[in-house]
Amino acid sequence: MLFGIIWGDYLDRSDIKVCVLRIEGTNNEEEMYNAFKRLGTSPEIVHLKELKDIFDYNCLMIPGGFSAGDYVRAGAIFASRIRAKMANELHKFIDEGWPVGGICNGFQVLVELGLLPGFKRMDYPNACLFLNNSARFECRPTLLKHESKGKCIFTRNIPKGEIMMVPSAHGEGKLLLPKEKDFDKLFENDQVVFRYVDKKGEYAEYPWNPNDSAYNIAGICNEAGNVFGMMPHPERAYFDRNKNGISGMKIFESVLKYIEEK
């Protein structure tokens, strides 16, 4: 009986198809693939040119790296190529509630696509992940406080207020929005998912906040909660449990739970 339940669950999981989308220069697709594979799903690493139909998948993930050499701006070329190939399909995919996630360069791509913070549908970005104030690539462990009250489907398995260690590795991670009141809106809408903190759990400046992002913001979601981006790499801290038992795995578990219940 027990075996049957476990087997049944396993089969359901293996039916979940995750598209790990890449182009030239993405370099975190293997880690992202493994994160989902270890949880029993059927991920695929798909080059944008080879993607037939986004609706063949239950989840779209854009991994980190230096897509198209970070030319023009980090993530801008990948975003424009996605827009050229499947802008309408992607909007439909999101409107139907399927999850779309971006880590590091993937977050930059989602911002360049105008999907984050996504206050309204636009063909151009309404935010920017700009050069770190230190003007250099910041590569080290960072501490993140989970801020979402439950909107973000990628972090529902993580209690609010928990702190997790997730490594950062980026040169452009400082979140900028056009107006100060846009940040108020982010907080009001429960779109702020992760913020950088120090070891006491308090919002602190550089080096705790590696890029000097406003309000220490490290990750945000859209208004519906199904598009999510963060600069640090949970797929690289998949097994690294903190004292509270939370590791990067929780993010991938959360989104799978959402898909299973959808």
Partner: peptide, 10 residues
């Protein structure tokens, strides 16, 4: 410019 070269936020 609008579609690629410029990010109007910065």
């Amino acid at each position: 410019c609008k579609k690629l070269l410029v990010n109007p936020v910065i």
